[in-house]
Design a binder for these strands. Structure first.
Lengths: 229, 229
DNA sequence: ATAATAATTGTTATATATACACTTATTAAA
DNA sequence: TTTAATAAGTGTATATATAACAATTATTAT
């Protein structure tokens, strides 16, 4: 058979799609674009693109994310390969979905306009093309799982954040309210936050102290058993 | 742009590879084959194959698994997409890896000979082609995670199994020994096993009672919080 | 000075996880 | 038939983690 086995193959295209999560302080959001080409032109869609022959799917996802956000060094993780034969109306395309976490405050309005992009709260996602709805659903599940054991929630917040903000984030991700006292105790007991001598004063009279995530402290711990919630 | 966007794409082949796990009563094992074609002909490898234009990657993985084992209705789960540009020496191929759990006792020696296949204990995996070593490592990790919350370990055992056998399985997967009393109590407390009035007498004088997994009982529970270990 | 608002803090009860060793059933050998 | 050997089966006490619950404090606007 030799490498004829390779030559006789063809006909499947490979794409990537990105679920981009943000957090506005209250709700978990996803960044969607109006698709700019046929088929399904003008419909809401995840940002995506084909994988070039000279790049890995990771590279492709980073490129695609950068096209939409202008950002680099974003937290991103491969989610799943979607490959139903008829998932893309225009041809045989499999898509490797990725999800990314960005600080919504860093995202520029200009880019948003250039790409006809918009943030949607997770409970108000519009109809999406192809199987993108399924991708979003799976991304949310994965985020819920992952955030329970890994310190990735901070990627969705500004560098300085308050404990109430952090709690709001977890409540948004898990879609349930949490007890303030238990939450605070548990998070601080992890020993991975540094308290700043500075308060956020916008959302209350008393003000809430800022904290920052200390990656060094985290790395020194045994990563296996870290339970965030 | 239209669907020229599609037509201009090409050059990436799509394959699947299967990590097939078995359990011999003592050790977790993986089924490997001697690769029958170039490149890397004659080296140890995972079972794999190209994805046809008319099938999903799931379908391709099921087909590939069936080729090697003759079995159907096997537990299988998509693992990860491996896509480094130079991962396959003969061309630009991305591979969607799957892992499967089979009852080693159901696997026929005949098929094993036909395909030059062999079971290897997980701590004695030989050098594998391409990035298959990485795939095996990732599959093991995923199995460890998954088995902690989902009743998939039973896929690796005969329909009837004893508690010591089940404990051996978990010890093999986690690579650590467990306390007999705590293990038994915890597993039985889940309420998903039925005790048979029959003993396995090969491995001890006293004999150990057989149990079977009761899928109905499991389905009636709240699946979220089920902690096996 | 007072009212209003959200941040901050502690205790108790319950559930879960861990550590630990003797008794029992059975068969092969004496 | 007794005895020895082997692995199965079983209970309790302690430590840790989780869950439930409300009063006090800091600050600013009135």
């Amino acid at each position: 058979m030799d490498i004829d086995k390779y030559k006789s193959q063809e006909g499947v295209l490979v794409a990537v799609d990105c679920i981009i999560f943000g957090f506005d302080g209250q709700q978990l959001q996803a960044l969607l674009i109006k698709r700019g080409f046929e088929p399904e032109k003008g419909k809401w869609s995840l940002m995506g693109g084909f994988v070039n022959p000279d790049e890995s799917t990771d590279d492709a996802a980073i490129r695609v994310l950068n096209q939409l956000t202008g950002m680099n060094n974003i937290y991103m993780e491969q989610l799943y390969c979607f490959s139903n034969v008829n998932r893309d109306a225009a041809g045989r395309v499999i898509s490797i979905a990725y999800f990314a976490l960005i600080n919504i405050g860093d995202y520029s309005d200009q880019l948003q306009q250039d790409h006809e992009a918009r943030w949607f709260p997770m409970d108000q996602i519009p109809n999406l093309i192809f199987d993108h709805q399924e991708m979003v659903a799976k991304a949310k599940e994965r985020l819920q799982q992952k955030v329970a054991n890994h310190p990735i929630g901070f990627e969705l917040l500004p560098e300085k954040f308050t404990l109430p903000q952090l709690q709001n984030l977890y409540e948004a991700i898990y879609e349930q309210s949490l007890d303030k006292r238990n939450f605070t105790r548990k998070i601080l007991a992890l020993g991975i936050l540094n308290k700043l001598n500075e308060k956020e004063k916008e959302s209350s009279r008393k003000g809430a102290f800022y904290f920052v995530f200390d990656k060094n402290k985290y790395n020194k711990l045994q990563h296996e058993g870290l339970k965030f919630l």
